[in-house]
Write a protein that binds this DNA or RNA. Structure first.
Length: 229
DNA sequence: ATCCCGAGGG
DNA sequence: CCCTCTGGAT
């Protein structure tokens, strides 16, 4: 029996509120990684690990001109590619990932990016988070990309009791309609960057502070203000 | 010092 | 489960 991990009390109703309010707050939430096709999005998403999307967008225009398709990436000189993406960090592992992934795309998928999760995650350097971004943004297929922000917000909002990304994905997907998954990921990420920050969350400015079990609000001023402190 | 739209390997 | 990989911003 799949030990039905239970969701935190009230998770469903909180999730519904989160979906509605974030949609109102960020109606135009979109993937910020500049790309022109699924392969470019895949490469940009790999580059975005531990790096802001803004800095990824600084290197990708030149990168995509130099390597216009999977075949070009597949036959790239590693040292040259490393240099081109150095500023995004983790450049050795990212270079390996991009080259080996592209060789795989050429050998097994005709140089095109597959549009199924089970195929995407077999590619070197592609995990569920990256796969869900590509599925949702490039192919319009529902997917909840669980990154550091989604992990943090889902935990603070008690939409899940788990800290494991795969279980978070399952928990949140279980209580949110599939039609909302992709937009919800993007909005949680945006909200995590702007408001629900890792170190110092701006709870007083948060549109979810009334339903968030983790919200830390300044004590409401009592009727009579006491001096001192 | 801590964090940024992670994934592979031990 | 843990660790490692990397640079840049704050």
């Amino acid at each position: 029996m799949p030990a039905a991990r239970r969701l935190p009390a009230g998770a469903r109703s909180r999730a519904a509120t989160v979906v509605d309010r974030l949609a109102a707050e960020y109606p135009d939430a979109a993937c910020a990684l500049v790309h022109g096709d699924p392969l470019q999005l895949l490469v940009a998403t790999i580059l975005s690990a531990q790096c802001t999307d803004e800095r990824v967008n600084l290197v990708t225009p030149g990168l995509f001109r130099r390597y216009p398709d999977a075949a070009a990436f597949a036959s790239a000189d590693a040292a040259e590619l490393e240099e081109a993406i150095r500023s995004t960090g983790f450049f050795r592992s990212k270079t390996r990932a991009i080259i080996e992934m592209s060789q795989d795309l050429v050998a097994r998928y005709g140089g095109r990016v597959p549009d199924r999760m089970e195929d995407l995650v077999t590619l070197r350097g592609v995990g569920r988070k990256t796969a869900n971004v590509v599925l949702g943004v490039a192919f319009g297929r529902p997917g909840l990309a669980v990154d550091t922000h989604v992990t943090r917000l889902a935990g603070r909002l008690r939409l899940t009791a788990s800290t494991d990304p795969v279980e978070i994905e399952r928990d949140v997907c279980a209580i949110v309609p599939a039609s909302e998954w992709t937009a919800l990921s993007l909005r949680l990420i945006l909200h995590g960057r702007r408001v629900c920050q890792a170190r110092r969350p701006r709870c007083p400015e948060c549109v979810l502070n009334d339903i968030c079990p983790s919200a830390q609000l300044p004590a409401v001023a009592p009727g009579r203000v006491r001096a001192g402190r």
